[in-house]
Computed example of a mutant assay.
Amino acid sequence: MAVDPHKHCPICGTPIPLDELVCSPDCQKVWDARLSQTKRSRLILYVVIAIFLIIWAVMTFMK
């Protein structure tokens, strides 16, 4: 009554083999879109932090 080793698709939860990332091309599209959005969000965060630090440095050293 043992279950074969497997993992679940991070998009829909369907059981998949250990060597696969997602279960279907549709889930792959969703996965790629999420990955792209995550990268974009991180880039925006880094840019906002850099702008804040530049403004802070200018305000601190220009007194």
Rank of each mutant, 00 (worst) to 15 (best):
M1H: 07
M1W: 04
M1Q: 05
A2S: 11
A2P: 07
V3H: 08
P5Y: 02
P5W: 01
P5V: 03
K7H: 09
H8A: 09
H8W: 10
C9P: 14
P10I: 06
P10M: 02
I11W: 02
I11M: 10
G13P: 14
P15F: 11
I16Q: 07
P17Q: 12
L18E: 11
L18I: 11
E20N: 14
L21D: 14
V22C: 13
C27Y: 02
C27S: 06
C27E: 04
Q28M: 07
K29H: 06
K29S: 04
K29Q: 08
V30L: 00
V30A: 00
V30G: 00
W31L: 03
W31I: 01
W31H: 09
W31P: 01
D32Y: 04
R34E: 01
R34T: 00
L35K: 09
L35P: 00
S36F: 01
S36P: 00
K39Q: 07
R42T: 00
R42I: 01
L43N: 07
I44V: 06
I44S: 06
I44Y: 05
L45S: 08
L45I: 03
Y46H: 11
F52V: 13
F52N: 01
I54P: 10
I54Q: 07
W56H: 11
A57T: 13
V58S: 01
M59N: 10
F61M: 02
F61S: 02
F61Y: 12
M62S: 14
K63C: 00
K63Q: 09
K63R: 14
